[in-house]
Write a protein that binds this DNA or RNA. Sequence first.
DNA 1: CGATGTACCTTGCAATACTAGGTAATAGTT
DNA 2: AACTATTACCTAGTATTGCAAGGTACATCG
Lengths: 113, 113
Amino acid sequence: MDTYFISRWKSQIKKGLLEYIIMLILKTKPCYGYELIADINRLAGMEIAEGTIYPLLNRLKKENLLKSEWIEKEVGIPRKYYQLTPEGIEQLKVMQNYMESLNESITQLMNIK
Amino acid sequence: MDTYFISRWKSQIKKGLLEYIIMLILKTKPCYGYELIADINRLAGMEIAEGTIYPLLNRLKKENLLKSEWIEKEVGIPRKYYQLTPEGIEQLKVMQNYMESLNESITQLMNIK
DNA sequence: CGATGTACCTTGCAATACTAGGTAATAGTT
DNA sequence: AACTATTACCTAGTATTGCAAGGTACATCG
């Protein structure tokens, strides 16, 4: 069980990481919001609320990093599938570079002493 | 040169990481605020403003993760040195575990497809 | 029909990095 | 001695954003 400090810290960690993780997942396949919540939990062990993901997806769409498309199947509720735009793919590359160098720094920091 | 999106994203990434990096550095040695800014930039490549570090250090102190001590030398301005408390050391361990598993997940995500 | 699950969305709050200011002492230069 | 830059600390206000808590609508199953 996490202390108050730790749970707030985890929430902070998500703030930047979430966008990155969502874009990484969308790079592998188009997803709809509800599916992303499950995927993020399964793949990254982070629990995300719906009130988090939908505004975030809308923001990324408004920033032209994602585009969406309603898909209706013969059965089930229609779903809004998101995928990366060319601009999104480009930005993701910048993010990956940054994360790699950041990751390297932190690994080094952890090994001092 | 970063786009608006990227620079905002980097700022978000810092939000959770900063506490973690500060505590990692303080684990290796006591530091004062001004020194931490330089160390974080040198070790993690992150540029931190003074208006960021001082409120953060005060918050961590109020949460009993850090303690501080004024040190006056014969020359120079007195400095407020911070170091981890026993509770801070313990919380840092929890954070390290979380970061390690998170890091593993992200590495895997990056290698899909 | 009633309950549960899927799938989308919005409003308001709380937390926090940063901008833009400030103070004060020291060190270096003219 | 006077001026400037640097070191070192701090605070008030703003903007951003995850989440809690609410909502809607359809599907599925007993």
